[in-house]
Computed example of a mutant assay.
Amino acid sequence: MTDLKKTRTEADYHLTAAFPQNRAADFIPACEVFIEKVDAFLAAHTGSAAASP
């Protein structure tokens, strides 16, 4: 989670540095994996799956 936040912060706030498209493309699957893990955690601890968008 920390690495994802650092990457997002770099892309969103460090506007003077280039953020390569391949890093952005790699970021999306990493976020999807994180979301799946959060959903699984919530389902295990609440007894139901998290609501899908």
Rank of each mutant, 00 (worst) to 15 (best):
V38H: 10
A25S: 13
E32C: 03
V38W: 13
P20C: 07
P29F: 03
F27H: 04
I28M: 05
T9L: 10
I28T: 07
L42A: 03
V38N: 10
A18E: 09
E36Q: 14
I35A: 09
D39Q: 14
Q21R: 14
I35F: 11
L15P: 00
E10W: 11
I35P: 00
F34Y: 15
T16W: 10
E36D: 14
E36G: 04
D39A: 10
F41G: 01
V38G: 06
T9M: 06
F41M: 07
A24V: 14
P29E: 08
T16D: 11
I28D: 04
P20D: 12
T9P: 00
Q21D: 13
D39Y: 03
Y13P: 00
D26E: 14
D26Q: 12
I28C: 02
T9W: 04
D39I: 01
V33M: 09
A25E: 13
E32Q: 13
P29H: 06
E36I: 02
P20E: 09
H14P: 00
K37A: 14
A25Q: 15
D26S: 08
A18C: 02
L15A: 06
T16V: 10
A40L: 12
A40G: 04
V33R: 05
A18P: 00
A24Q: 08
N22I: 11
N22C: 05
Q21G: 03
T16C: 03
A17R: 09
A18T: 06
T9E: 09
E10L: 14
C31P: 00
A40N: 15
A18V: 07
D12V: 10
D39F: 04
N22T: 12
Q21E: 15
A30R: 15
A30Q: 15
D39L: 02
L15I: 12
I28W: 05
E36C: 01
T16K: 09
E10K: 15
